[in-house]
Design a binder for these strands. Structure first.
Lengths: 139, 139
DNA sequence: GTTGGTGCAAAGTGTTTGCAACCTC
DNA sequence: GAGGTTGCAAACACTTTGCACCAAC
């Protein structure tokens, strides 16, 4: 994906491109996975020392509302964020934390089945499954 | 399921059956769905006025550890609890909150596929999908 | 009588809000 | 210059912990 796609999106939406927003997008992008609000704060603050927690929370909400970031659940019941790129879901190992990606297409059949049986339209947004990775399942 | 199954389970495990534990089990059972720790506290406190939050948190952890309760994520990033009965998952409508149950068997094929493609063994525990129920999908 | 469980109180952690000052546009 | 954003600080909500007392066994 075009690296500055997100930024174009915000600019064309008439939103201001502040160092805080750019830094948080950069942090999420480089993390390449889930970050909690607190983790995002800690990482972003290293690059932008004056940054406050309030701004991080507000910016993450803002980025989620604009569709630049996605919000999901992580193992311990907190919300985590990541850059919204392609449609995929995650398998997370509860033992070692290793993560694998799942194509969305694998889930589409299931969602279709939910629709047929219950009438529910499941949101295709990011989903996380927990389990044991190949290494830890043997241990 | 045998209504006192959970209680037998605790008794035979050598754990004490206190009014607090019995009340919290009763509250979870009658709720018939997900309750957050705070919701559990508020409901249980009505029946057992002296009850404290600390006890609710400790009891929910305890019940989860004993397999009497299940812990899952709800929409807003908090942990929620429910009585562990049969294997099923939930579809929750983000608009009106209506809930439908999904047989675990529907997911087993998907889990098998995850295993083949990534080697991950997905925990079969309780899962919640979010979306729009039949009524709200039209609105 | 033992010892696991609970109440109490306090602290810890994560998140939200009001308002004045600031900076992007 | 105007108004969207931010920093600051305080409040808020939720969860955890230590310790003395109590009650289920």
């Amino acid at each position: 994906m075009e690296p500055d796609f997100d930024i174009q999106k915000l600019r064309s939406g008439g939103f201001r491109l502040t160092p805080q927003r750019l830094t948080i997008i950069e942090v999420l992008r480089e993390a390449g996975g889930h970050l909690s609000a607190q983790e995002t704060y800690r990482h972003a603050r290293e690059r932008l020392p004056g940054l406050t927690e309030a701004t991080v929370y507000r910016t993450l909400d803002f980025l989620t509302a604009q569709g630049v970031a996605l919000m999901t659940h992580c193992g311990d019941g907190h919300l985590v964020y990541e850059i919204a790129d392609q449609d995929h879901h995650h398998l997370v190992c509860r033992t070692c934390g290793q993560m694998a990606e799942i194509e969305h297409s694998l889930l589409q059949d299931l969602y279709d089945q939910f629709m047929r049986e219950t009438g529910f339209l499941v949101e295709t947004s990011h989903l996380t499954f927990f389990g044991q990775c190949p290494k830890c399942v043997d241990g």
